[in-house]
Design a protein around this nucleic acid. Structure first.
Length: 800
DNA sequence: TTTAGTACACTTTTT
DNA sequence: GTGTACTAAA
């Protein structure tokens, strides 16, 4: 037996984190600093050495995948140990489902524990229905936009009425959204359905209203841990706080109660620089406020990186330095990792060329090493296609995460809808989904009539159908068809009640409903694929049954699995978005499509905060790499079939040349960037017409038609620095100790404009020291960052 | 009522 | 290039 099974191989800070048994603990953990290790070790430590009962531990993650991985690691660490219970490792959402399935009725309100979960597809259908009903056909207001507005409002506890009054003046748009929002909530309640936001909101609601339930969880979970804490939103934080403090007031005084922290802890681990989900309501200010919210918080920093080479970390550090809203931190490579290879950069003529290059490099790496693992990371799922094609052409097997997941396939969703109905017939969305699939004579007219009378009755569609059949308000033929449908659902419900197994029930949902029959008769290749998917679903059900899951569990699982959960660790080549890659690591990483508008995404242009989030995403992507990092971009790209010139991403410009090896054939944008030239004090942007890039000479003559601000225009850099200066001032007054860049009094200040005889106008990014010997870093549009010693540089101050 | 064909809008990231 | 929504014909 080792001296300490639970802290062996950990560094000082990690050990401190693991061994802190009580109180609020905030771990600021950089990428690759052994975050997961710390959490798993701490769980093991609490159980083995602090005498904590396993079931008193709750560890929350953001993906099922992370929870599963943590679970298996903990099990491994505790193997041989006789355990009375097991720690609960789960996502926020599945934790909430668990709580609500038990106790939702205690919250009052119309929901029963038999509720259905609506995923975003279901949500979109609800919205579509409402828009039809309210006759809102505004093309500038898409379902998705409406949905995200509603979600935004919900996660901030804004009611429909409140939403209408949001903003400075009443807007027609907001009123429309508010109107849809109101009906949306009514529809969900009628259907006994909760969407993802509701799962969290209802749980918080329950814990606030039902003191008994709250105490129960407070007593049970004495040690709560939250992974990826920077991704928590206000409601999730509230949830954790309710469980830990058992208090509904946010008063700090309540937390100081004697004995609260005795044999109790709240242990959160996060990294502001990896906060990339603000669009989903997450708010990294929660991390910043944690110490304030919880008196006596112990803060531990992990900056030692165990994953990547120094080159990769340098790149990551340099990128993230450009953000103003952060707690400064620098990652250090372990000695073992060393400096490593330079980052390889490739500029291709078009998107296809980029994909071919990537596929070639992957094939090369796989040949060279038998256990090489590569990842291709892109900003948006739609970028995957080209890479899939190029890899397929070369016969390289790959695993793709995201896009169309198994549980999103129509036939799978159909069968699940049948099963949902057998448990909760009032689920209108499920009912509409399958009422006529396979076709059974309940067409548009009948459905429309049903929806019409539903409006008068104000009950679920299921109840409406019963009433319609009874009152004979539909044609006899439709009536017979509806009866048949009711019989199908009723039959399934009886099977459920008689306790049949999950696999048996899934089979029944495909046979009794005529679904399989219809597909077989279709006799097409497509139908064959669907049949195979159904078979796959039955297999999944059999597996669930083996795990002693109920039908309910099985359906919940189908609703809550994320795309990231498709990730297979053993795959040699993985294609996925940068978001999905968070928390993972690969020896070889390709970051592709480094182009303005794609990455950073054009939607982020509107605000500096959004751009910083893109930059954090870039930081996340870079830090996934262990040994080799490849970055690439194309000069033109087809979108829809339309060819468009692409401008290199600003993030490329933020990488220092000494970390990069340019492997592009011929002249590249990067070489141009580094090229000292005196022909322009008002440099041309190299990103103009793509044709210019076929040879260097015409490129140099090429002038850009680019207008407006760019990332490295003097204006935007100046603006950015002004923002940073503000931030620095406020954070240091709060004692957060940002190392301020020393200003040379009276001479050059950070943010001031200077002219260089060679590079033209630029903006001072950093000053080290003062006077003539000061080291000055300047960013020049089109040339990147340059460092000078003040007295030799001959910089001329520019005043506007 | 069903189905086949055509126009069209759309592309961030996800529990 | 792709999935969905609408329209016309069987």
């Amino acid at each position: 037996m080792q001296p300490s099974a639970t802290t062996g191989g950990l560094n000082q800070q990690q050990i401190e984190a693991v061994e802190t048994r009580e109180g609020p603990v905030l771990v600021l953990a950089g990428a690759g600093s052994g975050k997961t290790r710390v959490i798993t070790h701490r769980i093991a430590y609490l159980i083995q050495e602090a005498g904590v009962r396993p079931e008193q531990i709750l560890a929350v993650t953001f993906t099922n995948k992370a929870a599963g991985e943590m679970k298996s690691r903990v099990v491994q660490m505790l193997s041989g140990q006789r355990m009375t219970g097991a720690p609960l490792l789960s996502t926020f959402h599945s934790f909430c489902v668990r709580v609500l399935r038990r106790d939702i009725e205690a919250a009052g309100g119309g929901f029963t524990r038999n509720f259905t979960i609506y995923d975003d597809d279901d949500q979109a259908r609800v919205i579509r229905g409402i828009r039809k009903e309210l006759m809102i056909d505004d093309k500038s207001l898409t379902d998705r936009q409406t949905l995200s507005s509603i979600s935004w409002a919900k996660s901030r506890s804004i009611s429909p009425a409140g939403y209408a009054n949001i903003g400075d003046q009443p807007s027609e748009r907001n009123e429309k959204i508010a109107q849809i929002y109101k009906v949306y909530q009514e529809k969900l309640e009628l259907a006994n359905a909760l969407d993802f936001d509701d799962l969290l909101i209802k749980t918080v609601d329950l814990l606030i209203k039902a003191a008994g339930v709250r105490s129960k969880y407070h007593e049970r979970f004495r040690h709560v841990m939250i992974d990826e804490f920077q991704d928590t939103n206000g409601i999730q934080y509230e949830l954790a706080r309710l469980i830990v403090t058992n208090s509904t007031s946010n008063e700090r005084a309540a937390l100081d109660e004697a004995g609260l922290w005795s044999n109790r802890s709240l242990f959160v681990v996060g990294d502001i620089d990896q906060s990339v989900y603000s669009w989903r309501g997450s708010d990294f200010n929660i991390i910043l406020g944690f110490q304030h919210d919880f008196a006596g918080t112990r803060t531990i920093r992990l900056e030692q990186n165990y994953r990547s080479t120094q080159t990769i970390l340098d790149a990551a550090n340099r990128i993230i330095e450009n953000n103003s809203r952060r707690l400064p931190k620098t990652l250090y490579a372990s000695e073992k990792a060393g400096q490593g290879d330079k980052i390889r950069y490739y500029q291709s003529y078009d998107g296809e060329g980029e994909a071919m290059w990537v596929a070639e490099r992957i094939q090369e790496s796989l040949r060279r090493s038998h256990n090489a693992r590569c990842a291709v990371l892109y900003r948006a799922n739609s970028q995957s296609r080209l890479f899939e094609e190029s890899l397929r052409r070369r016969g390289v097997p790959y695993n793709i995460v995201g896009g169309f997941s198994f549980y999103e396939r129509a036939e799978v969703k159909d069968l699940i809808a049948y099963l949902k109905l057998s448990l909760n017939p009032h689920d209108d969305i499920a009912l509409l989904r399958v009422i006529n699939s396979p076709p059974r004579g309940i067409g548009k007219t009948t459905q429309e009539a049903l929806l019409e009378s539903q409006r008068d009755l104000g009950v679920s569609l299921w109840a409406t159908i019963a009433a319609a059949v009874q009152a004979r308000t539909v044609s006899p033929r439709a009536g017979r068809a509806l009866d048949e449908f009711r019989e199908i659902i009723g039959g399934l419900a009886r099977r459920v009640e008689s306790g049949e197994g999950v696999a048996e029930l899934v089979k029944a949902s495909s046979i009794d409903t005529g679904y399989i029959q219809a597909l077989k008769e279709e006799n097409s290749k497509e139908a064959e694929g669907r049949l195979m998917n159904i078979e796959e679903l039955v297999n999944a059900a059999a597996e669930a049954e083996r795990q002693r899951e109920s039908l309910r569990d099985f359906i919940d699982h189908a609703a809550l699995v994320a795309d990231t959960d498709q990730y297979r660790e053993d795959a040699r080549v993985t294609l996925m978005t940068m978001h999905s890659a968070k928390g993972l690591e690969f020896p070889i990483v390709f970051i592709v499509g480094l182009e303005e508008g794609i990455f950073p995404h054009s939607r982020a242009y509107e605000s500096e905060a959004d751009l910083e989030e893109e930059r954090r995403l870039c930081y996340v992507a870079i830090t996934r790499a262990q040994k080799n990092l490849y970055i690439s971009h194309a000069m033109k790209r087809r979108t829809f079939g339309e060819e468009t010139a692409a401008e290199p991403s600003r993030f490329l410009n933020e990488l220092p040349a000494e970390l990069i090896e340019d492997v592009s054939p011929g002249p590249s944008w990067l070489k141009f960037r580094e090229l000292p030239s005196s022909y322009s004090s008002k440099p041309e942007r190299p990103a103009g017409g793509h044709t210019a890039y076929r040879d260097g000479q015409s490129r140099l003559k090429n002038t850009t038609n680019y207008k407006g601000k760019t990332y490295n225009s003097a204006e935007s850099v100046g603006e950015f620095l002004a923002g940073r200066a503000r931030k620095v001032a406020t954070s240091s007054s709060q004692g957060q100790g940002h190392q301020n860049a020393g200003d040379a009094p009276g001479s050059l200040k950070v943010g001031s404009r200077v002219r260089h005889e060679r590079y033209g106008q630029g903006v001072v990014l950093n000053c080290e020291g003062t006077g003539d010997d000061a080291k000055i870093t300047v960013s020049f549009p089109g040339f990147g960052q340059k460092k000078f010693i003040a007295k030799y540089a001959g910089l001329e101050k520019v005043t506007r």
